[in-house]
Amino acid sequence: MNYTIKKEKNCLVVAVTGEIDISVTDSLREDVDRALVNYGVNILIFDLGQVDFVDSSGLGVILGRYKKVAGKGGKVYLAGAKPQVKKVLELSGLLNIMEEYFSAAEILEKIS
């Protein structure tokens, strides 16, 4: 797995490629948290369009970031989840608290 974290407009866009499990969640969590502080944004987009697998450890990273960002009045969006990823997102209940869109570009368009 690898990921890029960049600021676009007033959002932090985290684009992940590959598989998310406990082998990568510590570094992903730390890097996203650091970027949230450094860029000073309160809108976070997880671009999952290139994610082939996620288990509850990856969902934990998303939920943990949601608690931080939403706790400060911000928003977290999910983008582009493939069917197998969307299935675990639905089962976990995360889609009840976060909005999900077809792509990160769609979200950036919506909130700009």
Partner: peptide, 12 residues
């Protein structure tokens, strides 16, 4: 036991 984990392992 960990606030960063969702406790969904057995549920899945």
């Amino acid at each position: 036991t960990d606030p960063e984990r969702m406790g969904l392992g057995f549920a899945f």
